[in-house]
Design a protein around this nucleic acid. Sequence first.
DNA 1: TATTGTTATACTCTATAACTATA
DNA 2: TATAGTTATAGAGTATAACAATA
Lengths: 163, 163
Amino acid sequence: MTDDGGLSPAELEAFFALEEVGSLLAHAVEQQLRSVGLTTVQFKILMSLFAAADGQLRMTDLADSLVVSRSGLTYQAGLLEKAGLIARAPSPDDDRSTTVSLTAGGRERIFAVLPGHMEVVRRLLLDPLSPEELGTLSGLLTRVRDHMRTDPPRSAAPRSRKK
Amino acid sequence: MTDDGGLSPAELEAFFALEEVGSLLAHAVEQQLRSVGLTTVQFKILMSLFAAADGQLRMTDLADSLVVSRSGLTYQAGLLEKAGLIARAPSPDDDRSTTVSLTAGGRERIFAVLPGHMEVVRRLLLDPLSPEELGTLSGLLTRVRDHMRTDPPRSAAPRSRKK
DNA sequence: TATTGTTATACTCTATAACTATA
DNA sequence: TATAGTTATAGAGTATAACAATA
């Protein structure tokens, strides 16, 4: 009658805990980002560029990795460009493409946010754990993340694959 | 120069893994919920009522626990009521308050979603872990969650607390 | 006076579809 | 023909402020 999908109590417990932890952490981070005038999406865009190998990405690749529509990314990129945090330029190899890159101002903004960002994470996530426990948690989550990445994202299908 | 807030590599690793796991899982769950005509917020509302001690909550308490504005909740409650999933009635003890409760249809909808919901969770989160690891993860996350709950949510301040 | 809930309103964001330019 | 990116547009959702009713 009360079919729960066959999950054990332990499984349900882990799931609900993860959902709540993720939700509370996301909210706290969002509040902190607001203090420097960034939304979560915008921060993700900046961090993606920051993490990119050569510091730049194509619009479409960026949209796909963030799982947003291209038009949605165009909108956000317009805001970030107007704020002087990113720059868009035609790609050298393919004239259809636009290459996005972080400006010096964008890098500064990242450095301006990170300390507070980390402080929130530390207070909410890290404080209650011992160093050993942190390592354990990190290891487990990394395994899960890697699995998520390789697993065909049937439920998080990329954009245009209209096939 | 590249101030990262003083977090160790292990801490950063745990943080980024958690952010990505939470993000990917949230997205997958959102896609699944869409198949039964619910948004994430609406599902959370239903689950909050389902989990409530006596199966009902005041509008304000519900809004606070979900960290949304009261007007925002009024909007969503209107949709859910129109869909016959919840019911609103004046509170017996306080005539200013409105008590929200799940209807039979609302309960049915929950049972309709849960199996698929759990399937997504199982595939993404639980599959790569052994039962022992699951227990460990669950324990750690539960600790973190409890800490988050007790810690003054300075960054997730409730609504009206205007001082 | 303070609180509960709703409403009116404006704004942000996102996606779909149409369009331009290039491959 | 297919792809990259933008634009026009429309829709969903959220919050602020004003309001009515009650404590």
